[in-house]
Design a protein around this nucleic acid. Structure first.
Lengths: 224, 224
DNA sequence: CGATCGTTTGATTACGTTCAATCGTTGTGG
DNA sequence: CCACAACGATTGAACGTAATCAAACGATCG
C-alpha cells in the first residue's frame, strides 16, 4: 500500500475518524491489490465478508439475470467504497461486482469493522451516511428511469460527468459506451443515436471525447 | 399508544433489543398519532429530525418534480419503519411522504436514537440491516424498470401481493390503481390494459379484488 | 338526480428496441 | 508489413410497446 493510498484512505469516512493505528489494525494483513479490467470481484449471492475501497479504476455492480443478461445498477470510482452494507443483511452480496478498468483496491474485513464500531459507535454514523447517500442516488435513478426519456438521461449523464471532471465542457467518457448505455437503462444503439441527436444542441463526439459547446444550453434543455 | 401498538413496536428491530424502558425513554412525550388519507407527513427537503414507525395504514414516498408530477419510489405498510436513514445525510429528507390510507404511526426522535446507539452500538447494526434491505429492494426495482415489460411487472406485483396476503390467489389491492401504476412505473391506462391482458392467464379483476386462478402458471409466465 | 372522481376503453402517435448490415480501430499471424 | 479476424460503435429499416389524447363508463357522494 503506497503512501498516497494511505492518505486517500485516511481522508475517507469512516477511516479518518479512526486514527492511523486503528485503521492499520483493521486492514492488517491485507495489502491493496491490483485488479485487471474484467476481473470479477464478487458474485451476487457470495457470502459478504468484506467491503471494498477503490484507490484507482472503476467497478461496476450489476445484477445477473437468469437469461444471462446483466443489469448495471451502479458504477463506483476511485476514492469510493462499495458493498459496505452487504455485510449487514443475510451476509450475501445482493449484486455482482466486476472491474471495468484496470485498478487498485483494498478489501476491508467486515468483522473487524463491526468490532471497531462496537468500540467507537460514532463510526456507525459514517456508514449510515454512506448508506443514505446510496439510497438517495438510487431514488434519483428510479425517478430518471421512470419519467425521463433517453435523450434527457444521456444529457444528464454528460453534464454530471462534466461536473466531476474539468467542468469546462471537455469530457472523457470513463468507460465503454455499451456499459454507459446499460447504466442508463438503454441499448447501445439508443445511446449512440442519442449522442447524435445531441449534436443539435452543441455536443460533439469523437471517439471517447465529448465536447459540450454551451453547458447552459444543455442544462436548460434537460430542465425544460 | 395502545398495548397492541406497544407490542408491535417491541417486536421490531431495533426496538426489541433495547428493552421497554429504553424505548419508553426514546419516544417519551410523543404519542402515536392518527393520520388521514392524503395527509402530508413530510416534504422532500424538510429537515429530517425524526423517522417513523407505521402501526396501521400505508404511506407512499415519492419525489416531486419541478413540473409538479410525482414519482413514487416506495410504499411502506404497517409494521414497517421508514426514513430511518434520512437523518444521517445532510439532515434532509430526500423524498416526500404522504399517507395513502387512514392509519396510525409514531415519530421517533433522531437525536434520541443517536444517543441510544452511542450507548449501545449493536443497535446500529439493526439500522444498517434495514438500510441494506432497502438498498436491496431498490436494486430490484431498478432491474425491473430497466429490463421488464409492463405485463411482467404487473404480474410480479400481483404475485408479491398474493404472497403477502392469503397466498390463496385471492388478492385485495391495497390502494388505488393509479398509485399502483405510478409505483410500477407506468400510466394508469397501461396498468388497466395490462390487467386485461392477464385475463388470458387466469387473472380476473373486479373492482379492487383480484383473483389468480393458477398461481403456478402466472409464476412461470413471469420467469419465462 | 347530477357532479365528481377513478377506471376503462379506443385511436393515434412516438419512442425505443430489435435485427441486420456497415464501418473503423485494434490486434494477430502469416 | 499487410491481410484478416475480432470487437466496439454506428447506421438503417421495421416492429412493438407504452404514452398520449380523448371519450365513455361506473361508483360514490352530496
Amino acid at each position: 500500500m503506497t503512501p498516497s493510498e494511505w492518505s486517500m484512505l485516511m481522508d475517507m469516512p469512516p477511516f479518518e475518524k479512526m486514527g492511523r493505528e486503528a485503521v492499520r489494525a483493521l486492514i492488517r494483513d491485507r495489502p491493496s491489490q491490483s485488479i485487471a479490467r474484467g476481473a470479477q470481484i464478487f458474485h451476487q449471492g457470495d457470502p459478504a465478508e468484506t467491503f471494498f475501497v477503490i484507490f484507482d479504476g472503476r467497478v461496476k455492480y450489476y445484477r445477473q439475470r437468469e437469461d444471462g443478461e446483466e443489469v448495471v445498477v451502479g458504477i463506483a470510482r476511485e476514492c469510493e467504497s462499495f458493498a459496505e452494507m452487504a455485510m449487514f443483511i443475510g451476509g450475501r452480496y445482493p449484486v455482482s461486482a466486476q472491474a471495468v478498468t484496470d485498478g487498485r483496491l483494498i478489501r476491508v474485513d467486515g468483522c473487524a469493522l463491526r468490532h471497531a464500531i462496537e468500540q467507537r459507535p460514532e463510526l456507525a454514523f459514517d456508514l449510515m451516511a454512506a448508506a443514505a447517500a446510496q439510497l438517495h442516488y438510487l431514488f434519483d435513478q428510479i425517478e430518471q428511469l421512470k419519467r425521463r426519456p433517453t435523450l434527457q438521461r444521456i444529457a444528464d449523464f454528460l453534464l454530471e460527468l462534466n461536473r466531476e471532471q474539468t467542468g469546462g465542457g471537455e469530457i472523457a467518457l470513463p468507460y465503454g459506451k455499451a456499459l454507459i448505455a446499460n447504466h442508463l437503462g438503454m441499448t447501445p444503439e439508443s445511446f449512440s443515436r442519442g449522442l447524435s441527436k445531441l449534436r443539435g444542441l452543441g455536443v460533439t463526439v469523437e471517439r471517447d471525447r465529448v465536447r459540450i459547446e454551451d453547458t447552459e444550453r444543455l442544462e436548460n434543455y434537460v430542465n425544460d
